[in-house]
Structures are given as structure tokens and as C-alpha cells.
Amino acid sequence: MQTITTSQARNEFAQVIESTRRGPVLIQRQKRDVAVIMSADEYQRLVHLNVSEFQRFCDQVGHDAQAAGMNEQVLQELLGDD
């Protein structure tokens, strides 16, 4: 990943945007990571990946809960709903 300073990002913004075609660009201020600029396509890929991963996690939790005997009736009893 390319790393640049905030000054470089400010002074060479058009080039930084163009650089995102090759991969994310890390921006540092006083040698600390402060931001990452990435292409819109990469951003969409990550958002979709996170949604997919979360769905898989939820599916696994549901499967594990069901295998442990959790069902709607048990859940209602635990929550005190009648």
C-alpha cells in the first residue's frame, strides 16, 4: 500500500485519486496513520464482503443455538414473554 503524508495528499490530490486505481493509499500525519483513500469499486467490494461475513456469522450463531436446543419457545421463556 502506498503511504503519503497529509501535505502530499493536499498538494497532489489528483495524483492520489489516480493512485487508488492501483490500490488503497494510506495517509499519515506526523508518522501516524490517519486515513485511507481507496477506489469506489474497492469500497463497494469491502462493504459487500462485510455484509456477507456478518450474514454468515448470524447464520452460524443461529445454527449453533438451534443445535443447543434454543427455539422460539425457549427464547420467550428466557425473556419472560408469554
Rank of each mutant, 00 (worst) to 15 (best):
Q2N: 08
Q2F: 09
Q2A: 08
T3Y: 06
I4K: 07
I4W: 07
I4R: 11
S7N: 15
Q8L: 02
A9W: 06
A9Q: 11
A9F: 11
A9D: 03
A9P: 12
N11C: 03
N11A: 04
E12V: 00
E12K: 07
F13H: 08
F13G: 03
A14S: 10
Q15V: 06
I17F: 05
I17P: 01
E18H: 05
S19G: 05
T20E: 01
R21H: 14
R21P: 04
R22D: 08
R22Q: 11
R22K: 14
R22G: 03
R22N: 08
R22S: 14
G23V: 03
G23F: 06
G23T: 04
L26G: 00
L26F: 04
Q28C: 13
Q28G: 00
R29Q: 13
R29I: 06
K31R: 14
R32H: 12
V34P: 02
A35Q: 03
V36R: 02
V36G: 00
V36T: 09
M38Q: 10
S39P: 01
A40F: 07
A40P: 04
E42T: 11
E42L: 15
Y43P: 01
Y43A: 05
R45S: 12
L46W: 07
L46K: 13
L46F: 10
H48Y: 03
L49G: 04
N50C: 05
V51H: 06
S52P: 00
S52K: 12
E53I: 14
E53N: 09
F54R: 14
Q55H: 09
Q55L: 08
R56S: 13
C58F: 05
D59R: 14
D59S: 14
V61H: 04
V61C: 06
V61K: 08
G62A: 12
G62T: 13
G62E: 11
H63G: 02
H63F: 11
H63M: 05
D64Y: 06
A65F: 11
A65R: 07
Q66N: 06
M70T: 12
E72P: 04
E72F: 09
L75H: 01
Q76V: 06
Q76W: 03
L78N: 09
L78T: 02
L79F: 10
G80T: 04
D81N: 09
D81L: 15
D81K: 11
D82S: 11
D82F: 13
D82E: 14
D82V: 14
